[in-house]
Design a protein around this nucleic acid. Structure first.
Length: 421
RNA sequence: GUGGGCGUAGUUCAACUGGUUAGAGCACUGGAUUGUGGUUCCAGAUGUUGGGGGUUCGAGUCCCCUCGCCCACCCCA
């Protein structure tokens, strides 16, 4: 291999895979539109502080996974590792809080994290995400979660379950943290080294550790949901009632902890055991303090992000694929003048919306036919000296070999007759 | 950042314990007498065996380094 290889951890999405990507994106747009979400297209590049101040200085993402560089104007810039921070920045910068509330936005595009690639984890990966601002009512939480499940259902992943939890707000979380620290302090000796560190930095994470010893030690550990303030508890309970009303199946997972610091209150996650170690398909939650932290007015918000590569992997496992576009016509021509005429005919068909290919070389009729077959053309249009003289076109329907002669305008009718779907 | 597995034509794979010009299927290009595809037959092109160094009379095969891919830890969508 020469020097021109894709960068480690990034990959090309080629046909026919890209058809599935387009299919998913198209369904996502439709679903989001139905729920009242509009698209926002934030830049991929942001000032580094946008991420350090939101995701959290002590998180792995900020600590060691960001693509950060200094530009020629001596600014520290970063390729976005996630979407929420950019959308919040845009929301604040553009004064979107003055627009009717709630503001509901969605985005899709590449994210960048400098990690060791493995199954379901690339350095450039793609997310579809949504963010809704301005409403603290759990109705919004329920709506957002229901929308996510509906999106998954429509792309062909019905039956996945959603786990939910509440992390508490700025009022009740500090107290819960204290309770946790107290619970684990006598067990420090039996926890893994990472969890000993977490005990100081972010004790919530101990609940998420996968080391068997730690799993054992946290039996009987206090659950966040038992230490919520009255407001948070009511919010969480109402959310569950609403999800039941909406027939969204979910399970409570008091051990679920989100990895980004800005999350508060409601947290949710959709996972699949078919994904290997990186099992989260989509995840999200509330971040009621983030807009304020970015210098905007105190504005509650909630969102989620869905991993495209992981979703595509799950769908591929289930043999879900999107069909390649059908080639309506292949124009075969023999002779110098007919080739020119063929281009004109093809152009005309294309303007009518028929996917049309022409043969570019001047190979034999047999070869051109062979090519038409290989491309899966529904019809072959043949132009030779005879057709040119008669002002007609020969055609052949590839499905059954039926052939005949038609005028150019009749050809259009022919192509549309059994153009199904 | 730390482990483990793996790198041979576009692709899927071959090549006995190191031994002559590294092979095959699929795919690709062309052909099988005069203007009609799918099956069949014939022919053709393509690799510095990921890269570099070493051992050897001789390395795709053994050793070292490096790069990449895959999986896991970690972390996350």
């Amino acid at each position: 291999m020469g020097p021109f290889r894709a960068v480690k951890g990034v990959q090309d999405v080629l046909p026919p895979d890209v058809f599935l990507w387009q299919h998913i994106e198209s369904i996502a747009c439709d679903v989001f539109r139905a729920y009242g979400f509009d698209e926002i297209r934030p830049p991929i590049l942001e000032h580094t502080e946008v991420f350090t101040r939101s995701i959290g200085q002590a998180t792995d993402i900020v600590d060691k996974e960001m693509y950060t560089f200094t530009d020629k104007g001596n600014r520290s810039l970063t390729l976005r590792p996630e979407g929420t921070a950019s959308v919040v920045r845009a929301f604040v910068q553009n004064g979107m809080h003055t627009l009717p509330s709630p503001q509901k936005l969605y985005y899709m595009g590449p994210m960048f994290r400098y990690e060791r690639p493995q199954k379901g984890r690339q350095r450039q990966f793609h997310q579809i995400g949504v963010e809704a601002f301005g409403i603290s009512d759990p109705k919004l939480d329920a709506e957002v979660i229901a929308m996510l499940m509906e999106l998954l259902r429509q792309v062909g992943l019905g039956g996945l379950s959603c786990e939910i939890n509440s992390l508490g707000c700025s009022k009740c979380r500090p107290a819960f943290r204290e309770v946790l620290v107290k619970f684990f302090t006598p067990k420090l000796g039996s926890l893994c080294t990472d969890c000993v560190r977490r005990h100081n930095e972010n004790p919530l994470r101990i609940l998420d550790c996968k080391v068997p010893g730690c799993i054992k030690e946290r039996k009987g550990a206090p659950a966040a949901t038992d230490h919520l303030c009255g407001e948070c508890r009511e919010h969480f309970e109402t959310l569950q009632i609403l999800l039941n009303d909406l027939r969204v199946s979910f399970t409570l997972n008091p051990e679920m902890v989100r990895g980004l610091d800005y999350y508060t209150s409601t947290a949710f996650e959709v996972t699949s055991t078919d994904l290997g170690a990186q099992n989260a398909v989509a995840a999200g939650g509330r971040y009621d303090n983030l807009v304020k932290d970015f210098g905007g007015p105190d504005t509650p918000a909630i969102g989620f992000a869905l991993g495209m590569e992981r979703l595509v992997a799950l769908l591929s496992d289930k043999a879900v694929s999107a069909e390649a576009p059908v080639l309506d016509a292949y124009v075969v021509s023999i002779g110098k003048e007919p080739v020119r005429k063929g281009l004109v005919i093809a152009e005309r068909l294309r303007m009518k919306g028929f996917r049309t290919e022409v043969s570019y070389g001047s190979s034999s009729l047999k070869n051109q036919m062979r090519r038409a077959d290989k491309l899966g053309a529904r019809y072959v249009i043949i132009i030779g000296e005879d057709e040119l003289r008669e002002g007609m076109l020969s055609y052949k329907r590839m499905s059954d070999g039926a052939s005949g002669k038609v005028s150019a305008s009749e050809a259009e009718g022919l192509l549309s007759t059994d153009k199904n779907n």
